[in-house]
Amino acid sequence: MTGPQAHGGEAALHVHVPAELRLFLPSRQRRRAAAEDPHGVSCPYDGTSSLGHVVQSLGVPLTEVSELRVDGVAAPDSHRPPDGAHLTLTPMPRPQPLPPSAPTPPRFLLDVHLGALARRLRLLGVDTAYRNDADDAELVRQANAERRILLTQDRGLLRRRTLWLGAYVRGSRPDDQVTDVLARFAPPLHPWTRCPACNGTLAAVAKEQIADQLPPGTRRTYQTFTRCVACGRLYWAGAHHARLTARVEAARRASEGEGPR
């Protein structure tokens, strides 16, 4: 008996893609998936490709899938399904369990397009590495060497087989991206402890030690300062502090599962 046929007489698989993963599908297939086709998205199949290849050919990075099932039975991404099989993708749970080799708390590395997110995470005290000049190969090497979770919106980068762990960041606005990362990985928050510029740790410093480095107005107005132990930048509760405090409070509520106020 032969399996169902795709257009042009090719064999096909039927892939059920849950709502959480449909953003990765091409628009035509996204519309079909949203219509709740009982057979799932039809995917041409050559009879030899692995499950992982099939899923990623649809645009879904394997980093976003926690389990693959073939005709109801869990299967590894190396499995080669039979023609006409029904595949079911299960999205990563939130928070996502991390492998035993992952540091605790988790550390992150962001690609060149997520600079605003990097600053927001550092403001919250989350260990976040970022460079605006690193290419894909460098990012993968650093993520593997330092056991950092690579965060990106580049699906091609997530498909690199040598990458130990990565995740797609949802949202176009930094606030939405922060909420997504906190929901997925639940890192502990320690606001005001990291340098937003370089990720170094901040330490209290006496005003008299740094008075000659301060603008006259700042020297007259503020009494409490911290300094980055890595790059030496100075911080104080200046004009933007209220806005930054609101961001920290919103992120704290999001991490605790509270709604916006």
Rank of each mutant, 00 (worst) to 15 (best):
G47S: 02
T193C: 06
T88P: 07
V229Y: 01
V205D: 00
W192N: 12
P215G: 03
Y235A: 04
P191I: 09
R227P: 01
E256C: 08
P174K: 05
D135M: 00
R148C: 14
E67D: 08
P44A: 08
T193I: 08
F24I: 04
L124G: 10
P99C: 07
H86T: 15
G3N: 03
L123I: 09
G125V: 04
P188H: 08
E36M: 12
A134K: 02
Q223D: 15
A85R: 13
P38T: 05
E146A: 02
C43P: 06
R131M: 03
G52H: 00
G52P: 00
A33W: 03
P174H: 01
A34P: 12
G238H: 03
Q177W: 05
D127F: 00
R253S: 08
A134Q: 10
Y45P: 11
G125P: 03
L189A: 01
V229Q: 15
R120N: 13
D111P: 06
E258H: 14
P196D: 02
F108N: 07
T152H: 12
D136S: 07
D212W: 12
K207W: 06
A34E: 15
E256I: 05
T90K: 09
A118F: 05
D136T: 09
H86M: 13
Y168I: 11
A74Y: 00
P95M: 03
A206W: 06
E36C: 08
D46K: 13
D180E: 10
A75W: 02
A74H: 04
G156K: 11
P26M: 10
S78L: 02
S66G: 09
R252Y: 05
G40H: 09
